[in-house]
Design a protein around this nucleic acid. Structure first.
Lengths: 109, 109
DNA sequence: TTCAAAAGGTTACTATATGTAACTTAGTGT
DNA sequence: ACACTAAGTTACATATAGTAACCTTTTGAA
């Protein structure tokens, strides 16, 4: 029943970016490398789902995971080149959101 | 437990675009006005979910719904100005996908 | 030496979202 | 009256996300 006519590469990108939380995680990492708990509290995601997403994004080579043997051990997540190159995408979304949404309280233009 | 530090306008935009199918529906409508069944078969979405999405996108003034009293009645969906202005976003995603995904078969770079 | 704390998760369980297929409504043509 | 088409809707099944409690390792205090 499915006969999509859409470019498979584009679909892959959309599926990556439409996966809930992925865009926010990437956006957050644009500020620089961050730790699990920093990402978690900054975007308000549950540990379980964040753990899933980070694994998935790492598999897709969008982010990199680095173990720092401090005490207690610290895990640092950062964007790869592939991840960093999503910046223009997020920038466009940001521009669009600033233009089309007005109030801070939930109402829109 | 949630203390997001992210701009609420940006979050709204992300939530709109991350809602499954929304980006593909909008992308599809960039080609011009289309009918329910055309959208459905071109992106391979179920009628139930497409119906939900179209209502939601209409509420958000991203798409417009027009009843054409032919026989049988035809409903035409099109992008509003707000929806059309998402074109640069989708273009950036398209560019990114073309650069970072190589094969047509599911493997990537 | 035993306790508590902190980072980064995982697990079991619940709630929400999505998918499937059959059904509905209204107008036409046969 | 009957079948056909477009655009949905409904009931039910499965998949994805959320919550809170628990696990592991290392350190430092009691």
């Amino acid at each position: 029943m499915k006969q999509p006519t859409i470019c498979p590469k584009f679909e892959k990108a959309i599926s990556l970016l439409s996966q809930r939380w992925n865009a926010l995680v990437i956006y957050q990492l644009l500020d620089g490398p961050q730790r699990f708990s920093e990402i978690q509290s900054s975007i308000g995601i549950s540990g379980k789902v964040l753990s899933d997403r980070l694994k998935d994004l790492e598999h897709q080579e969008v982010i990199a995971r680095k173990v720092i043997p401090e005490t207690p051990v610290v895990i640092e997540y950062s964007l790869t080149e592939k991840g960093l190159s999503l910046k223009p995408v997020l920038k466009e979304i940001e521009d669009w959101s600033q233009f089309w949404f007005n109030s801070e309280n939930g109402a829109d233009a």
